[in-house]
């Protein structure tokens, strides 16, 4: 059985740094599966208009397709080109909770994420996803700076 590493992407440069580090780690481990995850921030408790609700299924499909096209497929193509065993997951939800849930589902050895790119007011009020993850994760977490 090979080790599994889960890598959280954020669609920005910081996610690429997490991916680069995970590649190095995977080479050191040897036989290793890489699972790259992109979480679309979403809450089941947000408020929407009736029209938004009626179109939600369509929008969700569009959001997943965009995430796959712009983030997941280029990342998977680069990993496969380098000879890694990799697959991707795109899911809606709270970033920290969803990444942790996927690690548990996949029985991952470790989770690799980048330092949060959030800043300012929102971070002060709600804290960053990375900080929340480090505090609540069920598997070891590596935070790439």
């Amino acid at each position: 059985m090979s080790a599994k590493l889960v890598i959280g992407l954020d669609g920005q440069g910081s996610g690429d740094r997490a991916l680069a580090y995970a590649k190095r780690l995977a080479k050191l481990i040897g036989t290793c599966d890489l699972i790259i995850v992109y979480v679309i921030e979403w809450s089941p408790y947000s408020f929407q208009t009736a029209e938004e609700n009626a179109q939600r299924h369509k929008r969700r499909d569009e959001e997943i397709a965009t995430a796959n096209d712009r983030i997941m497929e280029p990342a998977l193509a680069s990993l496969k080109a380098d000879g890694f065993n990799a697959r991707g997951i795109v899911r809606h939800g709270d970033v920290a909770d969803t990444l942790n849930a996927i690690c548990v589902e996949e029985r991952a050895e470790q989770l690799v994420v980048s330092r949060s790119s959030e800043g300012g007011f929102a971070k002060r009020i709600f804290g960053s996803s990375t900080a929340n993850l480090v505090m609540s994760a069920s598997v070891p977490v590596t935070v790439v700076g």
């Binding site: 979403w42 089941p44 929407q48 208009t49 009736a50 609700n53 969700r60 959001e63």
Partner: peptide
């Protein structure tokens, strides 16, 4: 009772909240 694979769809809470706002 919500399936995590349906995350991102309209939740029971959202449907209730929208109906209540009307």
């Amino acid at each position: 009772y919500s399936d995590p694979n349906d995350a991102g769809e309209v939740s029971h809470f959202q449907a209730l909240a929208t109906a209540l706002s009307g």
